[in-house]
């Protein structure tokens, strides 16, 4: 394995950890934070590819990650607001209890 593959393996494992957390925990906040970890893993991939395979436009990877971080911040803000709204509505933030969208 070369350095690029090591970085990618690292990001895959981080992604899996975040996914496991998002799937296993019942607390909505932790689920959201698990999603953030998965986003972080994706960003690591961008940086790894940027670092090890230079392209003609030298800053592309970095700019992609910057946008991704901005979107992640927006996602976190909306997500946490949703958690608070759910809490106000149902007095709980357990996801298994929030099944109002059940068909």
């Amino acid at each position: 394995m070369n350095a690029l593959q090591l970085c990618l393996a690292f990001s895959s494992l981080l992604f899996a950890v975040g996914l496991a957390g998002a799937l296993a925990r019942s607390n909505a906040i932790i689920v959201l934070l698990g999603l953030e970890l998965m986003l972080n893993a994706a960003n690591i991939n961008f940086i790894a590819f940027w670092r090890f395979s230079p392209s003609s436009a030298p800053a592309t990877g970095v700019i992609f990650v910057l946008f991704s971080i901005a979107v992640a911040a927006a996602e976190a803000a909306v997500g946490m607001a949703l958690v608070i709204a759910i809490y106000r509505h149902q007095k709980t933030i357990r996801l298994p209890d929030a099944t109002d969208l059940k068909g």
């Binding site: 996914l19 998002a22 799937l23 689920v31 996801l95 099944t99 109002d100 969208l101 059940k102 068909g103």
Partner: peptide, 21 residues
């Protein structure tokens, strides 16, 4: 058609994510 699909809509957000994975 919606009635048929609605059985899959458990409302469990984590269930959806799991299905995705």
């Amino acid at each position: 058609a919606g009635r048929a699909y609605s059985r899959a809509q458990s409302g469990d957000a984590q269930g959806y994510l799991r299905a995705l994975a």
